[in-house]
Amino acid sequence: MTDLSTRPASTRDWLLSDAPSTRRQARLGALYQGWLTFRANTLAMVGLVILIGLVLMAIFAPWLSPYDPVAQNLGDRLMPPSGAHWLGTDALGRDILSRIIWGSRVTLFIVGTVALISPILGLLIGTVAGFAGGWVDQVLMRITDIFLAFPKLILALALVAALGPGIFNAVLALAITGWPPYARLSRAETLAVRHADYIAAARLQGAGPARLLVGHVWPMCVSSLIVRVALDMAGIILSAAGLGFLGLGAQPPLAEWGAMISDGRTYILDHWWVAAMPGLAIFIVSLAFNLLGDGLRDVLDPKGAKE
């Protein structure tokens, strides 16, 4: 540190400054610290790269896919992978690569929506239960127990059966069945911080319960929720694929990875690629989310380092 001038030498120094001079610098600095920790984790970076690839694939699907995903060509049905059809064709002669590329949109939509609704619902219910205590806690947690008592996919199946098959109902069913673990998690975190001195200190400044919950308890729950969500993403994809496989998710001719495996099931012995290719796609994306979740845990876990 020979440079004694107050102007930082580079953006990097500015970001890593121990004495940030504005709110924005402090916030960006904290983000950059997190990014450095994350970047050091090679596997997590692999996961991130795959997922960025997935998002780009979904955005640029019309330009990337070599064929129309729903165009049938019965003359070319069940063709093995070749130069013309890199991943082969399915029973109706549709190009599997194109269907996987378009299917990434459906997958991202399902995963994104469920991963947004369930944790927020769970956070709300869990923190209110943990913070209020008493009968509010009892009522909310018994409701959570009831939801937890049913296997998730069975409950989702029942919901979709009642609402009617379709992609929106599948999302709704997965979101409604997905929140209880998040509620449990955020309740546990809330109980851990509820009697912390910093909550007492804020209370002594006149902070009401709503402010304490949103401003002080939520920030302590969010990071473990994010990690949990990232690790659950794979499960959500598989549940969505499961619903699709059972014919209760995306309806034909919409390309959805689970439904594509279901279509390929009939031919799995003679024409393995019809089921294997979408299966591989689900596998890679699930793996990527798990790797990402692991990396995020290193960055966000409030119980790690930081001291």
Binding site: A196, D197, Y198, A200, H216, M220
Partner: peptide
């Protein structure tokens, strides 16, 4: 409070 490690919110 007694313990300044516990009385300041770690994320504030």
């Amino acid at each position: 409070f007694q313990d300044p490690y516990a009385s300041l919110h770690p994320r504030h």
